[in-house]
């Protein structure tokens, strides 16, 4: 797999052979509930190249958020990382002590969340919340950290940053709060920013602003972004590479161009067809919005064979018995499907 990525047929400009800043290998995060073991992330591997934007896509409950939280080791009980490795600069984060892990969080890897309205502490000023991180990781004095907080707020284009820094989260709109979260997350120049549905809770008009801000800052600061989302539209606009997850497993991985042009997994196709597209409204038949029938299977009670088989139009007898391996189907394009050829044939972009 290492080789495969290096010999990608259509590498994104600048990413070919780039350094891997984060490498997740065979990660398994399970939740040991009273009713049984929920395999939220079950053997997922992906890596993030320096300065790239990687999209991690899937429906709710497919394990994409849990995989990100696992990277920061913020899985709460009854969840536990049971297997795998998460490597950053040669170190396996899962082997670090709590203290060492804390020096990574917010510093080398930071995270922003889906809910800007509740992700900031309501009783502390914005300045205090941003400065706290800076003081912790950069050893700056209170005053310098405060100045840096103002600077960060200016960077995320909060007007009147000097005044805003003394205000509280409830005095700001959702979009502003997400900007503050971004300011906070980027304040220590992290190598990787994990963005968990950063625009889902925002108005559509604000969504684009926040995405563009993130991309712009990524260029400026050289931070790699892992963009976790269910929104293929967002991914198409922003990401160089995409990982598609289904039921705790990776089902497809390719460059963004390749994936949208020639999806090889029926689940990916389903996701694409369920996104409304204005440019196709003219042709009536194609304008129909498709949905993926059925629901994500219970992660406690996975069917044998391919997890997507019960919802898949291509499913054969084999799919229900045998689990397809995650294989390279074309240069740099991986999928876990027995019928990917058929999928590619029938998909007309």
């Amino acid at each position: 797999m290492v080789q495969a990525t290096q010999t990608m047929t259509r590498p994104d400009p600048g990413s070919g052979g780039a350094e891997r800043v984060l490498e997740i290998e065979n990660l398994k995060t399970h939740f040991f509930t009273r009713d049984g073991v929920v395999r939220a992330v079950d053997g997922v591997s992906y890596h993030v190249l320096k300065g790239e934007t990687l999209g991690v896509v899937g429906e709710s409950g497919c394990g994409k958020s849990v995989s990100a939280l696992s990277v920061l080791r913020l899985i709460a009980k009854p969840g536990r990382i049971v297997q795998g490795s998460i490597k950053m600069s040669g170190r396996n984060l899962l082997d670090l002590s709590d203290r060492e892990m804390r020096s990574i969080r917010g510093n080398d890897i930071s995270m922003i969340f889906q809910e800007p309205m509740t992700s900031l502490n309501p009783v502390l000023t914005l300045g205090r919340q941003i400065a706290e991180t800076i003081m912790l990781h950069q050893g700056l004095s209170k005053k310098d950290a405060w100045d840096k907080s103002v600077e960060m707020l200016k960077l995320v284009r909060i007007p009147e940053a000097e005044r805003r820094v003394t205000e509280y989260p409830f005095q700001m709109s959702g979009g502003m709060r997400q900007r503050v979260m971004i300011a906070m997350a980027l304040s220590c120049n992290p190598k990787v920013l994990l963005a968990d549905e950063p625009t889902t809770a925002l108005d559509v008009t604000i969504q684009a602003q926040i995405l563009h801000l993130m991309l712009e800052l990524k260029e400026k600061l050289g931070t790699a972004i892992v963009l976790i989302t269910h929104d293929l539209g967002v991914v198409a606009e922003t990401c160089q590479r995409i990982v598609v997850m289904y039921a705790g497993k990776k089902v497809e991985e390719a460059t963004a161009d390749e994936l949208f042009e020639r999806p090889l997994h029926p689940y990916t196709v389903g996701l694409m067809k369920s996104v409304p597209r204005l440019d196709r409204a003219a042709v009536e038949e194609q304008a129909r919005l498709m949905e993926i029938p059925g629901m994500v299977p219970s992660l406690k009670n996975m069917p044998p064979g391919c997890a997507f088989a019960p919802r898949c139009v291509f499913a054969t007898e084999r799919c229900r018995i045998e689990e397809p391996g995650f294989e390279m189907k074309a240069g740099g394009h991986f999928a876990a499907c027995f019928n990917s050829d058929k999928v590619a044939e029938t998909y007309h972009g």
């Binding site: 920061l72 913020l74 969080r105 930071s110 509740t118 502490n121 991180t133 912790l136 979260m181």
Partner: peptide, 26 residues
């Protein structure tokens, strides 16, 4: 159980700082 406690942990704060500085005040 609030989201901002998760944020505080994600910043790399030590547990006692999260408990006293972030949780107790709320």
């Amino acid at each position: 159980a609030e989201d901002y406690i998760r944020t505080a942990h994600a910043k790399g704060l030590a547990t006692h700082k999260v408990l006293i500085g972030h949780a107790l005040k709320n």
